[in-house]
Design a protein around this nucleic acid. Structure first.
Lengths: 110, 110
DNA sequence: TTATTATATTGCAATATTACGATGAAAGGA
DNA sequence: TCCTTTCATCGTAATATTGCAATATAATAA
């Protein structure tokens, strides 16, 4: 089927998994790391930097943009992509809350 | 093609994306949350709890086990699955390092 | 206007993922 | 032994993802 049954899960579970899904590709991690590193970017740089074809990079940028982790400003014929720091922080909070679940309990079993 | 070109990315990028990919499904988030909540579990519980067919749950458990986030102990006819806390901590560290990249620089552009 | 540059979109092929019915395997109970 | 319970695996259908060539679009330059 290939279709995730999102409707049977909570909003929170879908939110976390949606973020994780977007982060679940090395090209998108590489893009984000590069954007953090130079703190401003145009798409052409990324094509050279990462080594995938231009349409492929464009597609990955679209995914990152869709969940709001990056934003792009048109500057002449090129586009300046950068991290959306506000959304990045919000995402980090959401994700960290999930990651820190191991701190909440002290029981042990196996 | 559907094939990720892992070889052009760094070990770190592949590591982070691999973890994220596994967390990129709400059923697996739900499983982890449930395991944290009751801190011990058998697979049957998860089938009732989550609402997917038993083979589907089993498949998701396999994915989680493959990257080491959970472990399973056979107990009679059932299996006791639980979080592998050591690996969970290691994963959290890896992931947090990536998430905290926004703290490393102060420049702004867009 | 025409050409150039930079990025987005379309279309498609290859492969991966999700889900589940059917079946298998292993342990315990009757 | 045979049955039941519990979970894993197999096989398969439907859909999603990845990647790229070709093409479209938009802005600027000549």
């Amino acid at each position: 089927m290939g279709v995730t049954k999102s409707e049977i899960f909570t909003v929170g579970q879908n939110e976390i998994s949606s973020i994780a899904k977007v982060l679940g590709h090395p090209a998108r991690i590489a893009i984000l790391e590069h954007l953090f590193k130079i703190d401003s970017c145009i798409c052409g740089d990324l094509v050279d930097e990462i080594g995938l074809a231009q349409p492929t990079i464009s597609q990955h940028l679209k995914e990152l943009k869709k969940i709001g982790l990056i934003k792009g400003n048109i500057e002449g014929t090129s586009v300046c992509y950068c991290i959306d720091k506000e959304n990045w922080s919000a995402m980090k909070t959401t994700f960290s809350t999930f990651l820190d679940k191991d701190l909440e309990d002290t029981n042990t079993c196996c």
